[in-house]
């Protein structure tokens, strides 16, 4: 690991200025992913700006919105009464991620901005367009059982990236129509959580739409009528402490036997948390049934592709959607 300059600002604007003025500078919060990447030589910052002393830890509920500071820890958020009461899906997703120790370290902002765990991104001996733009994608012809089935064109894959975004929390926030509050040198802006992460396209080195000197300061989730009719289903290689191969966040608002609102998002299938908008629309106004859920899942799979080792996801993903919806509807 290369030595770095270390700064510990206490004001948001100071932190943003410190990163904005130095192309080699990076924010660090929980550090659970960045330190890992620095040890492996994937990221080599000249300067680390420690943002843990910024006042961004608050969790509150005000006028129909759950507000979570970017530095609130994953374990705090997952156990917070307002989160459990208003947005149990988020608590479930957070709880399914990482381990007790890591959840005590990882922040909300850092969780959203964690990098992919594609083995070729982590191994500097292999080409990787995300790590070294233009070098190629070793996963297309390599070990790709964890990789994308959505958001990438098969013909163009070797020039792009088939890695997946690894966060569980992000899948729930995408499903719950969360907003991201972003502070830059010029002021604050807000975007939909679904617009935070991007598809790889011809710039797979960019995971998000954030500018380099912008800082996520918090997240807001508007009230909904899903109540306990929300479920986070995670399929993984071992029962705990593993990344999703496929995950589904499903939430339903059922009134008088008919679906009044539905949210569906998937993890482990794309470069970003993957909302199934068309499947959601298909559910609206119809009575709950497994047959309906199967139709919706099939609609959601229409643009899926696979790369050999991850062919199984084409069957697993729709089945997981159906299972998650059955759980959410409390039909088992």
């Amino acid at each position: 690991m290369k030595a770095f300059q270390y700064l510990r600002p206490s004001k948001v604007q100071d932190a943003i200025r410190a990163v904005g003025s130095d192309p080699g500078a990076r924010f660090i919060a929980g550090g659970t992913n960045l330190i890992d990447l620095m040890k492996r030589g994937i990221v080599s910052p000249d300067k680390l700006v420690d943002i843990n002393h910024l006042p961004l830890k608050k969790i509150s509920y005000q006028s129909g919105r759950l507000k979570i500071g970017a530095l609130a820890l994953n374990s705090e958020v997952a156990a917070h009464p307002a989160v459990l009461q208003k947005q149990p899906l988020l608590a479930q997703a957070l709880h399914s991620g990482a381990s007790g120790q890591l959840r005590n370290m990882a922040t909300m902002g850092g969780n959203a901005l964690q990098r992919t765990r594609c083995p070729y991104f982590y191994d500097t001996a292999f080409p990787c367009n995300k790590r070294k733009p233009g070098s190629g994608c070793a996963a297309v012809e390599g070990i790709n059982r964890m990789h994308s089935i959505f958001g990438v064109e098969k013909a163009n894959a070797t020039q792009s990236c088939i890695a997946v975004h690894p966060s569980d929390m992000s899948v729930a926030l995408a499903a719950l129509d969360a907003e991201v509050i972003i502070q830059g040198q010029g002021g604050e802006r807000r975007i939909a959580f679904t617009d935070l992460h991007r598809l790889p396209g011809n710039q797979p080195e960019l995971d998000t739409t954030l500018e380099r000197n912008e800082l996520i300061t918090g997240f807001e989730i508007p009230d909904n009528d899903f109540g306990m009719h929300a479920h986070y289903l995670k399929v993984r290689d071992r029962a705990s402490f593993a990344f999703a191969i496929v995950s589904v966040a499903a939430a339903l608002d059922v009134k008088e036997g008919k679906i009044n609102a539905a949210r569906l998002a998937m993890g482990g299938v794309a470069h970003k948390p993957w909302r199934l908008f068309e499947a959601e629309r298909h559910l609206l106004g119809k009575p709950v049934s497994e047959a309906l859920f199967r139709q919706a899942a099939a609609l959601g799979m229409r643009d899926a592709v696979s790369f050999g080792q991850n062919d199984y996801k084409l069957r697993m993903a729709p089945n997981a959607v159906v299972q998650a919806l059955l759980h959410a509807a409390a039909i088992e």
């Binding site: 550090g31 330190i35 420690d50 374990s75 007790g100 120790q101 890591l102 005590n104 370290m105």
Partner: peptide, 12 residues
Amino acid sequence: QRTLACLSFAIM
């Protein structure tokens, strides 16, 4: 709180 010492910089 339980944490991982290997993923923590001492300076932090």
